[in-house]
């Protein structure tokens, strides 16, 4: 896939992807960046990811706390809040509708 186009698309939905990943279980920044890559979103650098996390935390969609890991340094774990779950559900519905509209346009057979 065209890297630039993917980055452009991702910019609009990165907060939703992060919200979606955290909704599956609490996670921390580095793990989230790995998960995004595993899901085919390419490399999302810390400089982009952490401000998104901060914004989500500030708007009350995520909660965060520091915890000492069994191995490695203390990490800041994020968990989705009830407001975050609600926002994610609403956004998921919207996205499905939006993606369907885009899909419909792109897959239409040209008229002869």
């Amino acid at each position: 896939m065209d890297q630039e186009r993917r980055a452009q698309w991702l910019r609009g939905v990165l907060d939703l992807c992060v919200l979606g990943l955290v909704s599956r279980g609490e996670s921390y920044g580095y793990e989230l960046s790995q998960a995004l890559r595993a899901h085919g979103m390419g490399t999302v650098q810390g400089g982009t990811l952490y401000p998104v996390l901060l914004r989500l935390q500030r708007s009350g969609l995520l909660t965060a706390h520091w915890r000492e890991g069994a191995t490695g340094p203390a990490r800041k774990y994020y968990r989705i809040s009830p407001a975050g779950s609600a926002a994610l559900r609403a956004a998921a519905t919207d996205w499905t509708a939006f993606a369907a509209s885009v899909g419909a346009i792109l897959s239409e057979e040209p008229k002869r």
């Binding site: 920044g29 580095y30 650098q45 400089g47 520091w66 340094p73 203390a74 800041k76």
Partner: peptide, 27 residues
């Protein structure tokens, strides 16, 4: 918090801060 979180990330990823976060003032 922001600095500690960045430090954790750098430790775990082992990558260079300029690559992960860019210049300090921009971040």
């Amino acid at each position: 918090h922001v600095v500690a979180e960045a430090a954790t990330h750098l430790t775990e990823s082992g990558e260079h801060p300029l690559r992960v976060f860019g210049p300090p003032d921009a971040y």
